[in-house]
Amino acid sequence: MQSLDKRSKYLRSLIVEMIEVKKGGHFGPALSLVEILRVLYDDVLKINPKDPNNPKRDRLILSKGHGCLALYSILFDKGFFNKKILSTFCSFHSPLGGHPEKGKLPGIEASTGSLGHGLPIGVGIALAAKLRKQKFQTFVIVGDGEINEGSNWEAFMTASKYKLDNLTIIVDSNKFQSYGETEKVLKIRPLKRKLESFGLNVYEVDGHNVQDLRKVLKLVKKKNIPNAIICNTIKGRGFAFAEAKAEWHHKSNLTEDNIKKMYESLK
């Protein structure tokens, strides 16, 4: 496995800064997402933080809203909001909640938090683009645990029905959900074959390998077929004490020592 480069460590340090404010949050599920979001925002999405509502922008929905720390980290990095806001995570008047909310911050396309909602919304957005012959792309990130929700499977069928080749479904396949391993809680694999049987054009990639992610995210396109990318990731990636550990899905009451260890991991 590749070691994390400077930028990946920097984005993780922003996550730790927010965690430090609240002394808690969804830590593990954000860390499996960092490279996926980094590549999307650095290399793929046509967006402008100074014009966040431009109708021609690409849309990204983080359906696994509990991974919001990673989204806040990249949105801050891209200039969607300032440093002062970063230090308000989860405080009473903060726009940075424990799940992302549309309207609270520029760059958030949908309020998510309850699982299985982002993809149907993304299907509607992609369908709207088709109906209006607009060129923008829609990306929806779902968790592998999130795919337990049946609404996703309804949405896969619908995306396929409407030939939404302007929609890319990204699965953050970190193999864990809140209670434990996804294969033990509710078996969803073989995922690639299942998604293909629902009519999707499916790729599989190392979700922490920036070069591979770049390649696959730029490559995806098959006429009339919606795309899915299964990103194999590690929950808690970058922090040895939290990697692949269900108990680091969400943490509260973190101690100064916990936070210190987080920063040390990024050195």
């Binding site: 299907v123 992609a126 709207a128 309804e154």
Partner: peptide
Amino acid sequence: CEQNIIGMSSGLAMEG
């Protein structure tokens, strides 16, 4: 598939 229908309709409404 009412769950998807309402989510999809929301996405369509977000786009006007």
